[in-house]
Amino acid sequence: MLLTEDQELIADAARRIAQEHLAPNAAALDRGEPAAREAFLANLERLAANGFMAVDAPAEYGGTEAGTTAFALTVEAVGNACAATGVTVSVTNMVGEVIASVGSEEQKRTHLPRLADGTYKAGAFCLTEASAGSDPAALTTRAVMSGNEWVLNGSKLYITSAAYAGLFVVWAVTDPDAPKGKGISAFLVEAGTPGLVVGREEDKLGQRGSATNAVHFEDCRIPADALLGPLHGGFRIAAGELAGGRIGIAALALGIARAAVDAAIAHIKEREQFGRPIAAMQGPQWMIADTETELEAARLLILQAAALKEAGRPFGKAASMAKLYASEAAQRATYTALQLFGGAGYIRDHPVERYARDVRITTIYEGTSEIQRLIIARDTLA
């Protein structure tokens, strides 16, 4: 699938910034060095200044308005250099997209420019709960109208970027008597709002530089106009945005895998065994050939899903196929890369062990592989 000139320019710019500023910081960020976290936050501002935190948002609100394909290319490029930054960029863009899609004019004018220019360092989705992961209709967080305010109570789990997000999209039950999934609404809550409490940062296997926290709402009062979209229309909003977010996570997985395979290719060209480079041997050649084929197939599925979304056509099944295939192919690719490094790949002197840890979550968040298979099967058999 050929890209337009504008899409190529955006991808090139994202790659340049990512390789110059993100890649040199990625290992230290993974180790949790305080200076690396500061550099990470500065890089989020740099990405915003170059238009990468609101790629698909309308230009009249400060966005780049470059489309879903440009968004996918951006996340791939950023994730290739630093997966922790890549997931932050992906989620922040999706926060902007949901506001642009269903927000009021006032919400768009208030929040989209702040996401686009980096005033909000990141955006966060508060959907997952301890008893509502793959089943978002099982939410227990409540929002009750009190006077001219909504009062939020409940807890969310595994919220990406919560520690430094400036804006949260929060889903809560607004009609507990409605059929399951029918009485849920979405709200916009700014960081610093009394009653919004960010919990401790999770100690994760991979993407360690991206903060993941519990978020608690303790009599958190927000104005009536913080309601995002129609009252009781939150489940439909969540389902739509999760579908779009799957394109971003697929692209992130591809970026991580591409970094791992490129490192492995460079290694086997230099590493000699039995008097010749490993790359001259048929076994490693076939491993590379199979991996390259899978990653190219993943790339085409991602671009197809992005093109459908840009065209306003149904894209949910395509997004699930892209996310399922790309995330699982990426895991195979990173482990192939680690295998080609041999024992050296298991050592932190080389980045492939980090790529293998970073890519693991991509088959879990934004809908597990099992959920993607359910979506694909139901659409196919309908």
Rank of each mutant, 00 (worst) to 15 (best):
M1F: 13
M1I: 08
M1R: 12
E5S: 13
D6M: 10
A11Q: 13
A18V: 00
E20F: 11
L22M: 08
A26N: 02
L29P: 09
E33Y: 08
L44I: 04
E45P: 05
R46L: 15
A48Y: 06
G51S: 10
F52L: 07
A54T: 00
V55Y: 12
P58W: 11
A59Y: 08
A59F: 06
Y61T: 02
A72N: 03
A77W: 10
G79P: 13
T92G: 13
T92A: 11
E97W: 06
V98D: 12
E105Y: 09
K108F: 00
L112Y: 05
P113T: 00
G118T: 04
T119I: 00
Y120R: 07
A124P: 09
T128R: 15
T128D: 13
T128H: 14
G133E: 11
D135H: 14
L139K: 05
T141I: 12
G147D: 04
N148D: 15
N148K: 15
E149A: 11
W150K: 08
W150G: 06
W150T: 01
V151W: 15
K156G: 12
A162C: 09
Y164T: 05
Y164N: 12
G166H: 02
G166W: 00
G166T: 00
V169R: 06
A172C: 06
G181F: 09
I184K: 07
I184M: 04
F187S: 01
E201K: 07
L205Y: 04
L205E: 04
Q207K: 10
Q207W: 06
R208A: 12
A211K: 08
A211Q: 07
E218P: 09
C220V: 00
P223I: 00
P230S: 06
P230A: 01
L231W: 13
H232N: 15
G233S: 01
A239K: 14
G248H: 09
I249M: 07
L252Q: 07
A253E: 00
A257W: 03
A257N: 10
A257S: 12
A260K: 03
A260H: 04
A263C: 05
I268D: 04
P277K: 03
A279Y: 06
A280C: 05
M281L: 13
P284M: 06
I288L: 10
D290Q: 05
E292N: 11
T293E: 11
E296W: 09
A297Y: 06
L303A: 05
L303T: 01
A306H: 03
A307N: 11
K309P: 10
A311S: 12
A311M: 03
G312F: 09
F315N: 03
K317W: 05
A318G: 02
A319F: 09
S320N: 13
A322Q: 11
A322F: 03
K323A: 14
K323M: 03
Y325V: 02
A326R: 03
A329I: 14
Q331N: 11
R332D: 08
A333P: 10
Y335G: 02
Q339N: 08
L340H: 08
F341C: 08
A344F: 05
I347C: 07
V352A: 05
A356T: 11
I361D: 10
S369T: 07
I371L: 15
Q372R: 14
R373M: 14
I375S: 06
I375Q: 09
I376G: 04
D379Q: 04
A382L: 12
